Simulated assay, not measured.
Amino acid sequence: MENKIKVGLMAYGMSGKIFHAPFFANHQGFDLVAITERSKNEAAKDYPGVRIYRDVDSLLADDTLELIVVNTPNYTHYEFAKAALNAGKHVLIEKPFSVVKAEAEELFSLAFRKGLKVMAYHNRRFDSDFMAVQKVVKSGKLGRIIEAHIRFDRYRNEISPKAFKENPVPGAGIFYDLGSHMIDQAIALFGIPSEFHKTYGKYRADSEVDDFAQAHLKYPTGLNVYVTTNMLVVKQHAAYTFYGTTGTLTKYRTDEQENQLNAGVKLTDQQYGKEKPNQEGHLYTLDADGNVVEELLPAETGNYRLLFDEVYNAIRGDGSYFVNQNDVLGQLSILEK
């Protein structure tokens, strides 16, 4: 493809190595040109020929780059995104987009004035489990949805060695980490709530950041959405449980993309994005006689590549992007403390 977008990554930790570099390197619309890696040399081994910079300033000074990926610790997102925009680059920002809403508003305003794109990286909209749930919601089979529960849990009782996740700095804690995914999914499904209430907790020994959080989102229709994330869940619950006037939906978190990418599965592998067998969701409705009918939901194929198609379209195509400015600002209104 002609007129490829030349890309630079700000970091090459898990996010850069797993969620960004392989997708840019395998997309015909992008050219992965440069990566910031402060001390290690893993990027050079994985992508020979890619320019390696030891600091962000050098990356931003590279005039050949058109798109910068801000995949650094949460509290740096605003500062680095602003610097990239001022350097004349389009920007893709890892979740959370920023720590507070006011920072996001400033970034959108700056991008508009400079004629650039600043985009939120929300790959979980392309998880197989979420795509299956979204299809059912759009079908109307649940009727008027009254109550919805979205969970993202883990079991990690120890304190992570990653200081930026465990130190009480802006943007730290499980709600910014995993909650941002679920808030974005709730907004994608139901829109921005009219009001919300939040609860936080610290339950691991010596934890300085929240490791439990729940947000109760209220909508004018009467819909109540409960978003919950907990780092001390030994036995996983269903990730999605929705109750409507004509049906009930349950679906576990079954997307395999992160596991596959960590295991070295290539994007070209026929099994990429496919769920393991017998992981279908369950839809319960009533027949004409009032009997409960159970339907297994066919598995969708997860596909983070679609996000990169969206990024390309935003820069080279019609300018639209699947996570819009109102989505981001609405999400941060809920996330910020």
Results as ranks from 00 to 15, higher is better:
residue 210 D to V: 12
residue 183 I to K: 10
residue 169 V to G: 12
residue 119 M to L: 15
residue 173 G to R: 07
residue 233 V to R: 04
residue 173 G to A: 10
residue 257 Q to W: 03
residue 229 T to K: 02
residue 63 D to M: 13
residue 307 L to N: 05
residue 272 Y to V: 05
residue 230 N to C: 07
residue 56 V to C: 09
residue 67 L to G: 11
residue 3 N to P: 06
residue 213 A to K: 07
residue 303 N to K: 11
residue 260 Q to L: 04
residue 248 T to E: 08
residue 225 V to W: 07
residue 27 H to N: 04
residue 309 D to Y: 09
residue 90 H to D: 09
residue 193 P to N: 00
residue 305 R to C: 15
residue 95 K to N: 04
residue 111 A to E: 01
residue 69 V to S: 06
residue 330 G to D: 04
residue 43 A to R: 12
residue 337 K to Q: 04
residue 64 T to C: 08
residue 106 E to Q: 02
residue 48 P to F: 12
residue 178 L to M: 14
residue 324 N to M: 08
residue 27 H to V: 01
residue 14 M to L: 02
residue 122 H to G: 06
residue 337 K to P: 13
residue 244 G to D: 09
residue 5 I to T: 15
residue 17 K to P: 02
residue 310 E to I: 03
residue 142 L to F: 12
residue 101 K to V: 08
residue 63 D to G: 11
residue 213 A to V: 04
residue 308 F to L: 06
residue 311 V to H: 05
residue 103 E to M: 06
residue 253 R to Q: 10
residue 138 K to I: 01
residue 302 G to M: 01
residue 234 V to Q: 13
residue 9 L to Y: 02
residue 290 G to K: 00
residue 33 V to A: 14
residue 103 E to C: 06
residue 129 D to Q: 10
residue 110 L to Y: 06
residue 332 L to P: 10
residue 78 Y to I: 04
residue 280 E to F: 02
residue 134 Q to D: 14
residue 195 E to Q: 11
residue 180 S to T: 04
residue 2 E to I: 01
residue 225 V to E: 00
residue 326 N to T: 11
residue 59 L to R: 05
residue 59 L to V: 13
residue 207 S to L: 01
residue 137 V to A: 10
residue 61 A to H: 07
residue 185 Q to E: 12
residue 56 V to A: 12
residue 123 N to Y: 09
residue 172 A to F: 10
residue 151 R to K: 15
residue 117 K to A: 11
residue 116 L to R: 03
residue 1 M to V: 13
residue 69 V to G: 07
residue 300 E to Q: 14
residue 172 A to Q: 11
residue 288 A to H: 15
residue 2 E to W: 04
residue 163 A to R: 11
residue 140 G to Q: 07
residue 91 V to M: 05
residue 120 A to C: 00
residue 154 R to Y: 15
residue 179 G to H: 05
residue 337 K to D: 08
residue 259 N to W: 10
residue 92 L to K: 07
residue 119 M to H: 00
residue 174 I to K: 11
residue 37 E to W: 11
residue 118 V to G: 03
residue 255 D to P: 07
residue 23 F to L: 09
residue 223 L to H: 02
